[in-house]
Nucleic acid binder design. Structure first.
Lengths: 108, 108
DNA sequence: TTGACATATCGTGAGGTTACGATATTATTG
DNA sequence: CAATAATATCGTAACCTCACGATATGTCAA
């Protein structure tokens, strides 16, 4: 079995493992009940932080934090209009991915 | 001690938020570079713990732990043959989900 | 049986994630 | 201007995840 005794520095077997790091990062961002719910909502329209917060049952600052995380993954963009900030989907693959998730986990 | 301070209990607005908890759980299980790689491998055949461990560049016990987590989500099953244990995909939606992930995060 | 191999489990500690409260920022209204 | 509304940011503490090493379990072979 000759396990590589090289401490795990950066040295993943070059089988595209590096690519999985990005995917894992984004999946991790998606993997939260409140965030999934926000994605679901935003796939159907644009909403403000307050609207999303209320619908998800979390305080505004918590909602804001979740939205910031997802924005960093490129899922959403935001525009300010007056004192409100509207979020909307920016990642076109998000709908397809969400449908896969729903067909597996939510449809039965 | 174990003083549970009654965090915000279960009080999600009943918009199907509970369902997202399961989905988030499974997504979280998927959201790890090594585990994604294992899924990718096992979508193409059955492999032993040692084979998966070597391919992912992690020690056997670490691989075993990852596989256990995924088995708990119903992604895989395992059969022992001699001293080896073979894992294989048990969740039929996994392939579709993985294709979504790859088309978003790995194809560019 | 003893020993080796393959896998699994357990305890531990480092580091990450989360919700919360307090505070800060930005924009509107009086 | 001050006051309020909507959102964002920050520090903190509780909790969770992960990899590691040690050990345990299961299997086969001599």
């Amino acid at each position: 079995m000759t396990i590589q005794t090289e401490q795990h520095v950066e040295e993943q077997p070059q089988n595209g493992a590096a690519k999985f790091a990005d995917a894992a990062e984004c999946l991790k961002t998606l993997a939260h009940p409140v965030r999934l719910r926000m994605v679901q909502m935003l796939l159907e329209g644009r909403y403000t932080v307050g609207e999303l917060a209320q619908d998800c049952g979390v305080p505004d600052n918590v909602a804001s934090e979740h939205l910031r995380l997802m924005q960093r993954c490129g899922f959403f963009t935001s525009q300010r209009e007056g004192r409100r900030v509207y979020y909307e989907v920016a990642e076109p693959h998000l709908e397809n991915l969400m449908n896969c998730i729903k067909s597996r986990f939510l449809s039965e």
